[in-house]
Design a protein around this nucleic acid. Structure first.
Lengths: 217, 217
DNA sequence: TCGATATTCAATTAATCGGTTGAATATTAG
DNA sequence: CTAATATTCAACCGATTAATTGAATATCGA
């Protein structure tokens, strides 16, 4: 049964790609769009050579593709949807089953989340009533690949500018990728500081879509 | 930003669990139900001590739980559904993106599959017409956790006995886990050898369920 | 209690991995 | 062509991993 072992070794390459925290960080950055090696190195705090090496591993696992533009090389996820979904599933499994991960989330995220998150069911109701502004804080590339019906895309870097023109009398609900995507937590914290009523959707886009709730486009 | 790195390192433990072909083999065996260390070692061809070591890694990643019964210890997946789904997603991603995996599948599975597989759409039609026997060749534990509506569970070891009482005039469609689960390929080959009209469902249970097609229970 | 069995633990070795450093390659600007 | 920039490659070191072997632990049956 050599074939099966060979095939499983190939599958294991995908596992290896996800087997280092640094690489996961790179994957998360790439999920936000195409990036050059230099920028990835800078954002992740790794050396350029080291970043390049990790990217080679991701490339061998088929997770990323490259494109040359002049003297720099841009990396992107070869199937962003599949990769993000996989990453999301890993996160959920880890927090469900690994005590240390659970504890980290409890200490660092739950505490940022003083008001409990809005459940998907509640949100459906709120949307029907029209009294909620639904904010997708993911980067535009992910937004346009699919988002909750009725959501407005405001990537985190643009949040402050966006808030200036917004009346404070509507409640805002934010969401991003999975349940442990930090973007939505940050957005809520910043909006509450600015005097808005802001809460977070329990889960993220993948969970919402998987539940068969309305998405666009 | 130490927290994020810590959390990602925890996530990476799940990746590590999936980062070895041997462990994937163990995971696949465990997906078929609770097993003792001895049996796992025997089925996988690893030494007992080595098997035990790999199982420790899976345990640290929270993927498996143990139960003692007399002098032997039984391992099982702590969340079989989540783990199988994750494994399945990894397989699909690998075959989609890794050239070597693609080639292995083409050479070893497609060739076992002389007639093309039945698409999910076709199968829905066939079931409606009632002229197809739908065979789930996964182990009973997985079958009872969810299966295609109308399927009959015949685990591979019992296939021969089952065929003896079966008239050869009905077409049979088999399926198992994902699109690269070998069970269904084997079943088709054995049934065709025995003179049956047998084909394989394109994809497997997870794909069918994800498409919103009818499942039980 | 004693011997047999199943599993884990500990020690060892070879292989792989993560990271650093500096050279090599490819592209652009001048 | 030369200099500057972005990325990869190659060599290297320390840490981790996979696998083997043999001892230690726990349970059961006699």
């Amino acid at each position: 049964m050599g074939f099966k072992q060979d095939l499983f070794s190939q599958f294991a390459r995908i596992g290896k790609a996800f087997a280092s925290g640094r690489r996961l960080e790179l994957i998360e950055l790439l999920a936000q769009g195409e990036r050059s090696v230099e920028l990835l190195a800078e954002s992740s705090g790794l050396s350029v050579a080291n970043t390049s090496q990790h990217l080679q591993i991701l490339k061998q696992a088929g997770l990323v593709k490259t494109r040359r533009e002049g003297q720099r090389i841009f990396y992107r996820l070869s199937d962003a949807d599949a990769v993000v979904q996989l990453f999301d599933a890993i996160q959920v499994l880890a927090v469900d089953q690994v005590a240390e991960a659970q504890q980290l989330v409890n200490e660092n995220l739950q505490s940022k989340d003083p008001l409990e998150a809005v459940s998907a069911m509640d949100l459906v109701e709120r949307i029907r009533n029209g009294d909620t502004l639904l904010l997708d804080v993911r980067p535009p590339e992910e937004f346009s690949a699919g988002h909750l019906a009725g959501a407005v895309n405001v990537p985190l870097p643009e949040l402050n500018a966006f808030l200036e023109d917004l009346p404070t009398d509507r409640e805002v609900v934010t969401y991003c990728r999975g349940p442990y995507c930090v973007l939505a937590y940050d957005a809520v914290a910043r909006m509450r500081d600015a005097g808005y009523q802001a809460r977070r959707l329990e889960g993220g886009y993948p969970e919402w879509a998987a539940a068969g709730l309305p998405v666009e486009p």
